[in-house]
Structure formats: structure tokens, C-alpha cells
């Protein structure tokens, strides 16, 4: 069974995003970009499934600008076998990403598609579920455990009250939560080897997908800033403040 792993190039999670002065978006010029952390977890899970024999081949795919090749090379260095870049400099919304992924999956024929539960830039939390809908496949979202057995996969999911387990027939879509695994770092020899692994470049048009946005961004603004307050010297002063506020 093949695994298809969509990975997105996003602002590094350590960087504090700044809104552009003209209110058109977030300033990404000269900002460190990395693989979406949830997608690293997705790649890691695919590799572990390959190591355990459940998966035979891992294909990473990204929709984005030419620079997203770096993200794909990271996936290859971690252990993916080949990669596909669907190159576009345009904004691609989750629905269009899902349509592209569906078309790519029709060629790759994966048994599992493992995505991140959300991308830390747009925080949409949609792509995996949309892809599952478009392909009429079951979905195991926010996964903290994935067990493949025969022609099904059992997914433990992080839900509001705790954990929930579902059993899905294969092929299936899984989206990763933080505690699924701890992604490995790529070793230097593997980074070198990754440079020789196949990376195909396509365009949305190759897949016949119209990526015209459905949502117009009218404005992007900083949230209201919170001012730092005061420091109290000791517990007594804190207790007094709490009492003043009617707490305790």
C-alpha cells in the first residue's frame, strides 16, 4: 500500500508573524519558512508505517511556490521515496488544494493519505476532511494513534472530552494531531541522498483544477494588543487583588 503525504510550506512556528502595514496580509518576505509541524508528524507516521511493513512507498506532495521544493526535500530526507510539487504562486484555498490532491491520488492510488490536522498559517483545519468528502473516503481526523490491520485502519482521535476511536475501511484519510509521534530529524547522509530522489513538478492546470479563490480577503489586521499589567510583590498583594475582583 502506498501512502500519500501532503506537506505545506509555512512560516516557521518560532517566528512571530507581523501584519503588513497596508493590511493586505502577513509579511512573509525574509521570514524563516519550514514544513508545517503537523505535516512533519504526517511524514513521520508514514515512515513508521513503512518500517512496520504496512506501507510500501511514500509519496510527498505540496501545492505552492517553487520554494516548496525545499519542504519536499525535507520530506524526502526524512524518508519519503518521491515527491510531487504542484507549482503555483497563487493563493490556493483548502477546497482547491483538496481537488488537486484528489486528482493526484487518482494517479498515485494510495491506500492511506496522511495530512496535518491544520496548517499553522491559515489555521483552517479543512483540507483532509474536504479531500475525504471529494473522494468519498472515510476520515480519521486529529489522530493520536494509527493502527493498520488488513483492509482497515483504526484511528484514535483527540476530541474535546478526551479520546475517541474509529475504524475505517481502506483507502482512508488520516489527519495528524500533535501527540501522534515525534518526528525524526533528517541525518546529513539522508539529506544528501534526498537530493537524488525523484521530484516531479506539475501545475494545477495539469490536474485540470480551477484554483480561483472563493473567499476574498478584504483586510488583515493585528489583533488588539494587550498591555502588560502590573507586578505584585507577594502572595498577600495577589490575594488582595483577587478579593477586589470578587474572586475568592
Amino acid at each position: 500500500m502506498k501512502a500519500l503525504v501532503p506537506v505545506k510550506r509555512v512560516i516557521d512556528y518560532n517566528v512571530k508573524p507581523r501584519v503588513k502595514a497596508d493590511g493586505t496580509g502577513v509579511d512573509l518576505a525574509n521570514v524563516k519558512m519550514s514544513m508545517n509541524p503537523f505535516d512533519e508528524i504526517a511524514v513521520e507516521e508514514a515512515i513508521r508505517l513503512k518500517e512496520s511493513g504496512a506501507v510500501t512507498e511514500i509519496i510527498a506532495i505540496s501545492v505552492g511556490p517553487a520554494k516548496a521544493q525545499e519542504t519536499l526535500r525535507t520530506a524526502l530526507a526524512m524518508g519519503a521515496d518521491s515527491a510531487i510539487l504542484v507549482e503555483t504562486d497563487d493563493e490556493v484555498e483548502p477546497l482547491a488544494v483538496a481537488k488537486i490532491l484528489k486528482a493526484a491520488a487518482a494517479e498515485v492510488q494510495p491506500g492511506l493519505i496522511i495530512l496535518g490536522k491544520q496548517a499553522i498559517d491559515d489555521d483552517s483545519n479543512q483540507t483532509g476532511q474536504m479531500l475525504a468528502a471529494l473522494m468519498n473516503l472515510p476520515q480519521g481526523t486529529f489522530a493520536s494513534k494509527v493502527v493498520v490491520e488488513g483492509d482497515s485502519v483504526t484511528v484514535t482521535r483527540e476530541v474535546d472530552g478526551g479520546l475517541e476511536t474509529v475504524k475505517l475501511s481502506l483507502p482512508a484519510i488520516v489527519t495528524t494531531d500533535l501527540r501522534l509521534n515525534e518526528p525524526r530529524y533528517a541525518s546529513l547522509p539522508n539529506i544528501m541522498k534526498a537530493k537524488k530522489k525523484p521530484l516531479d513538478v506539475k501545475t494545477p492546470a495539469d490536474y485540470g483544477v480551477d484554483i480561483t479563490p472563493r473567499i476574498k480577503t478584504l483586510k488583515v489586521a493585528e489583533p488588539p494588543v494587550r498591555q502588560a499589567g502590573i507586578k505584585v510583590a507577594d502572595v498577600d498583594e495577589l490575594v488582595a487583588k483577587l478579593k477586589n475582583m470578587g474572586v475568592a
Binding site: 483548502p94 477546497l95 483545519n125 479543512q126 476532511q129 474536504m130 475525504a132 468528502a133 482521535r157 483527540e158
Partner: peptide, 23 residues
């Protein structure tokens, strides 16, 4: 935007060919 809401809604959106607005 609970975990169940976030699980179901994009599936609805894609079936309707609508781009969801999250959160």
C-alpha cells in the same frame, strides 16, 4: 468550532463545493 464541528463541517463544504470559513 468544536472537535466534532471541525470534523464534520469541511466534509459538508466540499460536498456542496463551497469554501468553508473557519472559526
Amino acid at each position: 468550532a468544536t472537535s466534532h464541528g471541525k470534523n464534520i463541517t469541511p466534509r459538508v463544504a466540499a460536498l456542496l463545493d463551497v469554501m468553508q470559513i473557519s472559526d
